[in-house]
Design a protein around this nucleic acid. Structure first.
Length: 306
DNA sequence: TCGTGTCAAGATCTT
DNA sequence: AAGATCTTGACACGA
């Protein structure tokens, strides 16, 4: 059974849970005004989240990535004493109930400026703060261990081995609340499927395989030979994979607007028998998902899509 | 209403 | 050492 999902933005609902403001705007306001603005943005984001979740349910979409901007300025000093968890208790419960009732899987993806293997202590501190925020949102929603947050290994800093080792060291020191949710994804420039798999096995964290990234950088490994090991890193959690098609041969790393159904089928055939969630990463978001799903149906292939 | 400058971050490459 | 680039949608604001 393969479940498809999309990241952050629904093209159908248009209103998405990613409303934000800028620091400059906030700084023009007094303390009370700042609080009011932050509160109103988060309230909109909860409203939009419910709208997106309901839309997802109507379209049998059970996998969705929550935007990192969900709580505005959550990790910024300007909102340090804002207790959004307490203030929005009711909303977290409501959204969490909906997600659990409909057995949805909500994940998140801290921004690419949060880097666990950084050699700079202040960057590491900011990264942990950001991971902590992402974990808190999933915790407040009362979601289970399948609600992971995805990160990349980070920079190479001229020494790939040492940088992988620093990731492992920093990972081990993380608080349990973060470790329980953090999973690692292969990237498209530095850390390959094999690098990340070996890392994940050694730190005992799940690995998100990104097929497109693997196609961007690899040492000729065949995916199918590694899938069982990758799935094993998930233990009894449901494995998650990222999938997208390249924009063009010339601009290979970029994501295409939609998913190429032939690409997808070629990969999906490797998955028979496995329970898998596949996050599609492309510009057309939910529209691309629905399009792919109908194309897979038309193809007549016996692939069980959820 | 529309177009555009701005934002937010760290690594890496360029100068 | 400083600056550009990557990436990216949407805010904020002036036309």
């Amino acid at each position: 059974m393969i479940r498809l999902g999309y990241a952050c933005i629904s093209m159908a609902t248009k209103n998405n849970p990613n409303k934000k403001t800028t620091l400059g705007q906030l700084q023009k306001l007094d303390r009370a005004g700042q609080r009011k603005k932050l509160r109103s943005i988060l309230q909109s984001n909860f409203f939009n989240l419910m709208e997106v979740l309901e839309y997802n349910r109507q379209h049998d979409i059970f996998l969705y990535r929550l935007p990192s901007e969900f709580v505005p300025f959550a990790t910024h000093p300007i909102a340090q004493d804002w207790d959004w968890e307490r203030e929005f208790r009711w909303d977290f419960d409501k959204a969490g109930d909906y997600i659990r009732t409909h057995k949805m899987r909500i994940t998140s993806h801290p921004g690419h400026y949060s880097i666990l293997n950084t050699p700079h202590p202040e960057v590491l501190e900011a990264t942990i703060k950001d991971f902590d925020y992402h974990a808190r949102v999933l915790d407040q929603l009362g979601l289970d261990a399948d609600s992971v947050m995805v990160t990349h290994v980070g920079g190479v800093y001229g020494d790939k081995r040492a940088s992988l080792e620093r990731f492992a060291e920093n990972y081990r020191k993380l608080p349990a609340a973060i470790k329980n949710r953090l999973v690692v994804e292969n990237d498209d420039t530095s850390f390959t499927m094999r690098d990340v798999l070996e890392l994940c096995e050694s730190i005992q964290a799940p690995m998100v395989l990104d097929i497109h990234h693997h196609n961007c950088i690899n040492d000729g490994e065949a995916i199918e030979e590694y899938l069982p090991r990758i799935f094993r890193t998930w233990g009894d959690r449901t494995p998650k994979i990222h999938f997208s098609s390249p924009k063009s041969d010339r601009d290979f790393r970029s994501h295409a607007d939609d998913i190429d159904v032939e690409d997808f089928l070629r990969f999906a055939r490797l998955l028979t028998g496995n329970r898998i969630d596949i996050m599609l990463e492309c510009k057309n978001k939910d529209f691309a998902l629905l399009k792919l799903r109908s194309e897979v149906l038309e193809s007549g292939e016996t692939i069980s899509l959820g």
